[in-house]
Design a protein around this nucleic acid. Sequence first.
DNA 1: TTGTAAGCGTTATCAT
DNA 2: ATGATAACGCTTACAA
Lengths: 335, 335
Amino acid sequence: MASTIKDVAKLTGLSIGTISKVINGGAVLEINRILIEKAIKELDFKVNETARSLKTNRSKTIGIILPSLENYFCTSVVAYVEQYLSKHGYGTIICNYREDPEVEKEKLNFLVNKMVDGVVIIPSGKVKDEIINILNRDVPVVLIDRLIKGINCDAVLVDNFNASYNAVEQLITRGHKRTAIICGPKDVYTSDERLKGYLAVHENYNLEVDNNLIKFGDYYLKSGYDLCLQLIEMENPPTSIFVTNYDMTLGVITALNEKNIKLSEEISVIGFDNIGMSKIVKPSLSIVIQPMEQIGEAVAHLILKRIKGDKTNYPNVTRLKAELVMKDSVSNVNY
Amino acid sequence: MASTIKDVAKLTGLSIGTISKVINGGAVLEINRILIEKAIKELDFKVNETARSLKTNRSKTIGIILPSLENYFCTSVVAYVEQYLSKHGYGTIICNYREDPEVEKEKLNFLVNKMVDGVVIIPSGKVKDEIINILNRDVPVVLIDRLIKGINCDAVLVDNFNASYNAVEQLITRGHKRTAIICGPKDVYTSDERLKGYLAVHENYNLEVDNNLIKFGDYYLKSGYDLCLQLIEMENPPTSIFVTNYDMTLGVITALNEKNIKLSEEISVIGFDNIGMSKIVKPSLSIVIQPMEQIGEAVAHLILKRIKGDKTNYPNVTRLKAELVMKDSVSNVNY
DNA sequence: TTGTAAGCGTTATCAT
DNA sequence: ATGATAACGCTTACAA
């Protein structure tokens, strides 16, 4: 059905060696090159990448593994990584492990089988051996958003500790003495970092931490909604809330709206991740913005560098800064 | 580095033919099978899928192409398709074409090169030749959510016309004479279907259509927000709004909250797609729910059937019904 | 510059 | 039941 180099050779009367050369950019008589290119077009010949991969051990494709297709941060970063790699001639295979470490392992093996030249992963943190296995095969891996104990590996992280510290500091310096934090799951690296920032700034300002104001969600909308309701229904509710991802921020805003609690006037909120949101909510929402595009670029840059064989500065752990955009959803408290 | 059949053969003293047989389930002496399996474990031998693909012309993987990683419907359906295929032993390669038909073409070719056994796509509608090309190579294709003129091909669709008809009918029968619709882009198949349902029900109820109440967004949150503001600021605003996707529904709710316009009491709204939302918004949001999971299952089922060579009932266009969940965001109008 | 042939790791055919 | 071998389509020495 699909034509092969052999067909092109037959049609042109040249050998497959010569055909291969024009495909891969070797030196060929101009007259033959033209002849061959014409034949290629005529036959609609496409290189069989599988055969090529088998021979060269390279596939010009990179695997990207993410935990969920329903998380704004993840899909956004992955989209940027893909876009950047695509620009550089690399195809991408995106795999979703649905927050399931077992599936994560499967996908890792799947990508190895597909002979990807590199792996980019937003890991669960619970899978280690399979990643080491890939590294041992000399396939570069770049971790996004979290390190994994026992693995020495390139990574691109956001300085979540300081992002959180700075956000909460803004609330504290405006007089908020009771700031709640809605974290992600306890066992997630970034979630923990953000909590640590919250705790550290309290300590540095000599403010007592009320454990009732520390809530753990699951990064989905509903948990933001539920936890926000819990907070505002406390007998001694917080005067401000720091929410640590986009979907939960959406839930918090929804809960406040429903209860007719006015942003800024009655409660101050700093949200996370989605700049678009900031503009839509009124009063405009203060927000921590992770540099998705920068992350994507850094990741793509790093993996391409490794694929080229450049091992300088290994392992490279890039830490990017989040930006804090203060808007009108935060007010001063006067006692 | 990684071991091959040859290594297993050497270690066991048997031939590669025999090894291959136990891998693929042929008849082998029990004693040898045990020997071989032990060796396979010992060497951590894994079949080289690339070599296998080259030989068999099958890859046990299916390509999934979607227009955006930031659209709830798309990612949700794709996640289900993937989950179902995975259960049946098929790997998946997910490709994002970022709403760009040129990228869509690239991805289609990429997947052909990767020798996928089938292609599942949520198409832009603007790419035709590349899909036909794939079909001509005898690689089955299943379209999701839209048909493409000039292509005879399996597809799984939602009956958007009736979904829309039924939703708007609910508003009309409750006395709403001015119902706005926030559509997706004009050139999107499903968007058009939903508009047609809206128009048809108006005609059947002998209600005049005010073209000012028909708005076209882009399926992103902000356009729902912006268009909702436009609507409520009209001199003769609608008494109800039908929003035709999830992200725009989010935008509409945000706009209404911001303007302190009470759902149901002051304006009725029927939204789209995300059942989770319905519960979070108060009063609870009436909503059209597309059967994402059913779609995913139908798609996976269909493509697997075609891959097996079963061409019965081709092309199979499955039309699934959306469900209308009426909640408290819709009120009766008494004139 | 061009052609020939080996080899990538499988599967599958055909003797044995 | 097992083993030897050709073939899948390509790249890459090496020979011509």
